[in-house]
Design a protein around this nucleic acid. Structure first.
Length: 403
DNA sequence: TGGCATGATTCAGC
DNA sequence: GCTGAATCATGCCA
């Protein structure tokens, strides 16, 4: 386009500073756009560019204008403003403007393909989805926190007093959400301000150079893209923060927490009242889990641990066994309308079905009684796992169910 | 802070 | 898949 640069005049109108458009074909506009009647002291008739004395004057005139344009940035603001105003009013301005339009037309073609709309970044989509799922972006619904809390409770291990942990998680998530929205708002505001500023500049510039609406659109798109990349970084950082918080919370879920006293009591009651066969059925486990506010697998764990530890050290558990035997016996005497342990029928009510074998099994307090009496046979097996005691209803036993 | 208690996990056997 | 056994990891308390 500018490959055929030639000085418009011999007096350095292009002044060797690369103005370069003097040789542009568009310069022919200078020959066609003119105002013949305006033959003033500040400029010659453009029609007479070629050959005449006036032509030389006109060239000098254009050279002066170009020189002024080139040096305008070196001047003070006031001077520049004054110069700008003068140039705007200059009679040659329409001609120069027309040249610029032509140049614009040419260069615009080469830009056209470079700034096409880009498809949405898949990474950004993922980040958006994650932030939405975690309840950081979008309407506040406690989704992420609630989901995490729900997952925690459903997987077991969350005692009721872990609600403190929930609130901690929620408050931290809320903090992240708040920071995210504040920053996002800041970016959006800055983007809007900057866009407005640039648009104003372009409008202002459109007085001295051709600025098409499409160009403004492109400029706005460029600004938005730049700010969008900043937003992507913000989203990425937010996601990382949420992931860290989440992982910490999930790790915390795995921490061992003691069951509540009441839960332990319920489990112990069942255990000692079914000492001859401490294998709760699925229904019984469900009932116990419900009673204790824990999961079935936790009930299974508890019974697994209890059986082993009981068997390992029966004497140590004797006192505990006596205590629960007393409690159960008292309960049985006072009436069976206030049951404490779930039976294995899954009916939801408790029976004292195990109290009979308890009396059979529990030795005197001072007892040097055998494991057999405690429900554990000499060979280490639970006495009624395969042969329930007469007093033990079949439904409560490990031996008569799938367990 | 150390030792014990206890819930959870892992692994092998059935 | 359930269980026993061993082990881990953490909570609790003196």
């Amino acid at each position: 386009m500018l490959q055929q640069q030639q000085p418009l005049t011999g007096n350095g109108a292009s002044n060797g500073r690369g103005l370069g458009m003097s040789g542009h074909p568009g310069m022919h506009a200078l020959n066609t756009v003119h105002q013949p009647s305006q033959h003033r002291s500040d400029g010659g008739d453009p029609a007479g560019l070629e050959g005449s004395e006036n032509g030389h004057e006109s060239r000098r005139d254009i050279g002066d204008i170009l020189q002024q344009i080139m040096t305008i940035t070196d001047q003070s603001l006031d001077e520049a403003q004054a110069k700008k105003h003068a140039l705007n009013c200059h009679r040659m301005k329409p001609a120069l403007f027309s040249v610029l339009c032509e140049i614009k037309e040419k260069t615009g073609l080469s830009m056209r393909n470079a700034q096409e709309e880009e498809p949405q970044d898949p990474q950004l989509v993922r980040l958006d989805n994650m932030l939405l799922a975690e309840g950081v972006a979008g309407p506040e619904k406690g989704g992420g926190a609630a989901a995490a809390v729900s997952a925690a409770t459903s997987s077991g291990g969350m005692s009721p007093d872990s609600s403190l942990e929930h609130s901690d998680y929620k408050s931290k998530l809320s903090q992240i959400r708040s920071i995210y929205h504040t920053e996002l708002e800041k970016y959006e505001q800055a983007c809007t301000e900057f866009t407005t500023h640039v648009m104003n500049l372009l409008r202002e510039q459109s007085r001295t150079r051709p600025v098409t609406p499409r160009e403004i659109e492109r400029m706005v798109a460029i600004i938005h893209r730049k700010f969008s990349s900043i937003q992507t970084q913000l989203k990425q950082s937010t996601c990382e923060a949420v992931m860290i918080l989440r992982s910490r919370f999930l790790d915390a879920r795995r921490k061992r927490r003691n069951f509540s006293k009441q839960a332990t009591e319920v489990l112990n009651e069942y255990f000692y009242s079914h000492l001859s066969n401490p294998y709760p059925s699925e229904e019984a486990k469900e009932e116990l889990a419900k009673q204790c506010g824990i999961t079935i697998s936790q009930v299974s764990n508890w019974f697994g641990n209890k059986r082993i530890r009981y068997k390992k050290n029966i004497s140590k558990f004797q006192e505990e066994a006596n205590l629960y035997a007393m409690k159960t016996a008292l309960g049985a005497r006072q009436g069976d309308d206030s049951p404490h342990t779930p039976n294995s029928t899954g009916s939801g009510s408790f029976s004292l079905s195990g109290s009979a074998d308890m009396f059979l099994g529990v030795p005197p307090v001072n007892g040097e009684h055998s494991a057999y009496q405690m429900g554990v046979q000499a060979n280490g097996n639970w006495q009624s796992r395969n042969s329930p005691t007469p007093g033990t209803p079949p439904h409560s036993d490990h031996s008569d169910n799938s367990d």
